[in-house]
């Protein structure tokens, strides 16, 4: 069976006053139907840029896809005419964001926004659309959905807004939901609710989920596969359990150590050095300036992605030694 989404050699650049910045460099990955895959990385890793590029939502200028294909269900979204792309967005691929208050329309009720979404993509009467909308608000776990239908975004709590945004996104039963840091702005007890909701909706609706996050704990809770990005490149990829049990890239190792928050015998946390933010991009591995295992070779050339066990890939010259 062919993949639902196949991203091939995607490169995205930002043209700024200071020059051209390659935010995503030669990124490739696939998502199968019904699968949950997480792209994890820190600020500047290119993960959100990649997510926006998938649906061609990057503001241009300054952002621009300079190479690559985004093949979704047989069509290359990177080359699709705008009107056809609009039919794909929302109907077949939907997206939710970290900040629902910025993503929702402040002067329209939640209900009106769901109805609009539905009627944009489906031939359905206003009344039937309202019915479906109220049903959806119930499905995403909003209490008294009829009342919520008539509320404005500012009248809802952060958790309820996120539920409303998920409701709007799922209204047309997309085959793929792209979720960019969907729980990062939420409190931990509400985060747990929303993660549980996403997992159960995914099971019920059979859609695939692409999760963009900085939080490895969230990855562990929900994803099947993980792609680790650093400096615009994929540095490691594999099944979540395998990668977490035995990471092969030094960056993945460091990130996992940092996420587990355990003190050493001397009472300190494991740390990795921080590079200068203005450090010039070198020709070598982008993690080399911070890498405890870097050797001369790492600064001279960038390592290519290589197979590292079943369904696993890693981009590190010393991957073979990186076992602990």
């Amino acid at each position: 069976m062919s993949a639902l989404l196949e991203v091939r050699d995607l490169s995205v650049e930002y043209r700024t006053g200071a020059g051209v910045l390659r935010a995503v460099d030669d990124l490739a990955f696939t998502i199968d139907r019904g699968e949950t895959i997480a792209i994890v990385g820190e600020s500047g890793s290119g993960k959100s840029t990649a997510a926006l590029a998938l649906l061609r939502l990057l503001p241009d200028p300054p952002g621009r896809i300079v190479a690559g294909e985004i093949v979704f269900a047989g069509r290359n979204l990177a080359a699709l005419p705008d009107d056809e792309l609009r039919d794909v967005r929302g109907r077949e691929v939907a997206m939710i964001f970290q900040d629902p208050l910025a993503a929702l329309n402040p002067i329209q009720t939640i209900g009106a926004q769901i109805v609009e979404m539905l009627r944009r993509h489906r031939r359905i009467s206003a009344l039937a659309a309202e019915h479906r909308a109220v049903e959806m608000l119930g499905l995403v776990g909003m209490p008294s959905p009829e009342q919520m239908f008539a509320r404005y975004p500012h009248q809802l709590s952060g958790g309820m807004r996120q539920r409303a945004m998920i409701g709007i996104a799922l209204m047309c039963h997309p085959q793929l939901l792209v979720a960019d840091e969907p729980t990062s702005a939420l409190d931990v007890t509400v985060q747990a609710q929303v993660l549980e909701l996403l997992a159960s909706l995914k099971r019920r609706l059979g859609m695939a989920l692409l999760l963009i996050t900085h939080d490895l704990a969230v990855v562990a809770e929900i994803a099947d596969r993980v792609v680790v990005m650093y400096g615009g490149r994929k540095v490691e990829e594999g099944p979540v359990r395998a990668v977490f049990a035995a990471p092969r890239h030094p960056y993945t190792m460091a990130l996992l150590d940092a996420s587990r928050i355990e003190l050493s015998a001397e009472g300190y946390l494991a740390e990795i050095p921080e590079p200068m933010p203005s450090a010039p991009p070198g020709v070598g591995c982008s993690f080399a300036p911070r890498c405890p295992r870097a050797v001369a070779k790492c600064l001279a050339a960038a390592p290519a992605l290589e197979d590292a066990g079943p369904e696993r890939k890693v981009a590190c010259f010393r991957a073979a030694e990186n076992v602990r």
Partner: peptide, 14 residues
Amino acid sequence: EALFAAMPVADPEA
């Protein structure tokens, strides 16, 4: 108790 239990942990085997 609920706060500790809601905290996601970076361990898929948890």
